[in-house]
Design a protein around this nucleic acid. Structure first.
Lengths: 261, 261
DNA sequence: TTTCATTGGTTCATTATTTGAACCCTTGGT
DNA sequence: ACCAAGGGTTCAAATAATGAACCAATGAAA
């Protein structure tokens, strides 16, 4: 591990739970000599990655980070960032995977991939907006997004797209409630006949649901084993996508796992 | 300059205009050996601060930055806190207003607002670092910040950005001295042609100048009345921003006394 | 108010890492 | 088939990082 990595790894000790760290605490966390840690801290401060509270002498994350995050957001389109994750997931599952972002009261597909290894494939149009009440993605957003959005959809007429499209508000409210518990949503033939899908919410830096990661497959290919695979992959993938959008990374997922993906 | 600073300074070459940089370009920008730069880049990638486009092999800012920015804003919401002040000032004056923080020997924009009520608007890139000798913000920091910083800038070459960029150390020293008396700084076409700006220092709780509040407007819109409005608004606003940073400015202390400290 | 423990920060000889000129490999253009 | 340019690697030499011991300031306890 080079000097640069040693210094940068110090920044990883910050979290919402631990926003300020003192010199001694750092040396304990990093398990390195005090002098070394101190020099690293000084250099990080000089470059704006940390700033030191002049009262407590503790260190906290500095303004340079905000500027860089800003540059990345503005210059690195979300689509590009999401491509490898969606591609990997699609390859892993051999099914259609897409990321869609909330746009008014519809979902706008950002990117999708379909590594066909089965005979039948699910139809998906990247340029078509998805309705909230009839897709697993929409239901995921309703479950984890703002309450107003849910109210709005509940009070509007619900267009029938396929044989099993939800059409009664009470039905939708029940489903959404269930998905909130589960952490992911499911829809069977709500948008297109013979197609079912699973979706998990994607969060931005302020923990707001801004979109979804979803897997769609022919209903005929669905079974318990498949469901478990999909749900597990979806959880992992949604966290990765959230991370891309600056959202929070649950404690039980390490950076290594993300790097490996 | 230590290894850490050398590596981190590579990140500063990114901007909205230059979101991706290749190895050779980096070596030219940094003026360092290719092998050195490459090792630094590799280590930054390993830590998530950069990622490499697998097609072009260019480097771009990585996702680690988003997480850190997230932590900082959630635990130390300086940007959020400053937004209403900057917005109000911009609305009041009908001009571009920004708060920037000192980061090494540059200023890093934290937030800006531009409530356009005039035909022309000033260009401002929130993701671009500001030089100290060529902007009113920089001059304000030099006037009220540490003496070493001023010495450092005086002894370094002064890049010419626009028609009236200060380029002689004696000139800069004079200006800074004058601003110290006034309590605010002014720059006419020092950074961009046809643009002038006013700035006032922002202090933290230990009375150190950590940044600035600035107003930028087309030189063509400048007149005495405007200047008086801007300066009055700037004094008031800068104190508000200082307050946000815990550096509230006691009424009985004049700016001259601060200067002495 | 003296003492002691804790934390932040510094020094300097030793040590290990960083450095860079020269090199190789791949790609894309002609 | 050739060349130019960019990305990446090697290894002896140079330089910068390291850490045990030290100092200073703060604050709680005796």
């Amino acid at each position: 591990m080079g000097t640069i990595s040693k210094a940068l790894s110090l920044l990883n000790y910050f979290s919402t739970q631990r926003p300020e760290i003192g010199l001694t605490e750092f040396t304990k966390l990093a398990g390195r000599d005090k002098a070394t840690v101190h020099r690293h801290l000084v250099e990080l401060v000089q470059n704006g990655y940390l700033e030191q509270d002049s009262r407590s002498r503790n260190y906290r994350l500095g303004p340079a980070i905000l500027r860089l995050a800003n540059v990345r957001e503005r210059t690195f389109p979300a689509r590009e960032a999401v491509i490898p994750i969606v591609d990997a997931l699609s390859s892993e599952l051999g099914e259609l995977v897409h990321v869609s972002l909330l746009q008014g009261d519809m979902l706008s597909p950002l990117y999708y991939a379909d590594k066909i290894i089965h005979g039948t494939r699910v139809h998906f149009d990247e340029a078509e907006l998805l309705p909230l009440h009839a897709t697993s993605s929409g239901l995921a957003i309703l479950a984890f997004g703002p309450e107003e959005l849910l109210q709005h959809v509940l009070s509007a007429p619900m267009q029938k797209f396929a044989v099993k499209t939800l059409s009664r508000p009470s039905e939708l409210r029940e489903e959404v409630h269930e998905f909130r518990q589960q952490g992911f949503s499911f829809s069977d033939q709500g948008f297109e006949d013979e197609v079912c899908s699973f979706a998990a919410p994607v969060f931005d830096h302020s923990q707001r649901a801004i979109g979804t990661l979803a897997v769609a497959l022919p209903t005929s290919r669905l079974n318990l084993e498949k469901q478990q695979l999909v749900v597990a992959a979806l959880r992992k993938g949604a966290d990765q996508v959230s991370f891309v959008f600056g959202g929070h990374l649950p404690e039980n997922i390490s950076r290594d796992q993300i790097d490996a993906a």
